[in-house]
Write a protein that binds this DNA or RNA. Structure first.
Lengths: 186, 186
DNA sequence: ACCTGAACACCGTTCAAGT
DNA sequence: ACCTGAACACCGTTCAAGT
């Protein structure tokens, strides 16, 4: 779509995510990618060993993006566990309100259709769930309750990413819900 | 897959959901449907005015299924608002644990790609959110807090439907989380 | 009615050759 | 270094022809 310049890995991966979002997992194909980028198939194989390598790279990128919020949060040692969780949720909410990653829903869809992808997505899910559980423990919830509340929170996080339209949850009213979940036990 | 018998509307709709789940929104096509059902295109147009009519019917079915839990719950006047919410969540959880509706994730995906579908899905989302808000009010949460806690709960509900793998939330530990969200205000 | 086998279509992959 | 263009490989699908 522009001045000829050699393609970067990101060009290929972005095009692949676009195909995934618009036409589903089956559209992640060498010929369609090349068509989208205006090159021939030989070019693809200069950049990637094979199609599987590109797909692996796609998941890696998603995982990295998905984990970024957690990492950002975790390094902010200035925040209490409670504030850290709130910041995590508002961050995801903000991203979603700004158009969000359309790829989130497409990726879950892909995961349903491809066992390899599903495995990696589950790993990432478990990682994030573990992080939330740790924070909730640090906030004072003990025993198995910590894990179930974390699971509920994590489901909410995923749901927020999937839900279209104006979010009913805003940064302003997020704290109240989180505090309730972190509140009185049993 | 059996003795020849004339096709019902459900046959067409089920086939369409299968195509949606397996191949994405773009696979909802007259020719692919006919192929799946072993008939020719003329048959489709005897059953439906056009492709849009079939799609509308698909959404209507989903919406009805999605609302069923709420309706079931709402009619159980024997339950307190708190127990009613818990029953709603465990119901969805149970359904998901049993393999769940693979179509849920596919439908959100479709919604991203098709504005008409998105509109109808949003309407259903808002309906369900309103129901939850009412219940939470009845459970004693006042003002805007009721809506934000409902929104959080609803996001969790959607997330639960999307998440694959063994659920970290079980019916047994659901109550604790719900009670927390229904608990102490501000 | 059911099967064969050749042809075709589709798409991932390779590679010698260009710039 | 990056890409072209043509060829090849694999596999699902079609279909005329057999029994």
């Amino acid at each position: 779509m522009n001045a000829r310049q050699s393609l970067t890995p990101s060009d290929w991966i972005n095009a692949a995510f676009r195909l995934l979002s618009e036409q589903g997992p089956k559209a992640i194909r060498v010929d369609l990618l090349c068509q989208a980028l205006g090159v021939t198939k030989g070019s693809f194989y200069w950049h990637f060993r094979d199609l599987a390598a590109l797909k692996a790279e796609m998941i890696a990128r998603w995982r990295q993006a998905a984990a970024r919020d957690l990492i950002d949060a975790a390094t902010r040692t200035d925040l209490s566990p409670r504030d850290l969780i709130i910041s995590l949720f508002t961050e995801v909410q903000k991203r979603q309100a700004q158009g969000g990653s359309l790829a989130e829903t497409a990726l879950r869809q892909w995961s349903d259709a491809d066992a390899t992808v599903q495995k990696l997505v589950r790993e990432a899910d478990n990682e994030r769930l573990a992080f939330l559980t740790t924070q909730i423990r640090a906030a004072g919830i003990t025993g198995g309750e910590a894990r179930s509340r974390a699971a509920f929170m994590y489901a909410a996080l995923i749901g927020m990413e999937q839900l279209a339209g104006e979010p009913a949850l805003t940064p302003a009213n997020m704290a109240g819900v989180i505090d309730a979940i972190l509140g009185a036990e049993g």
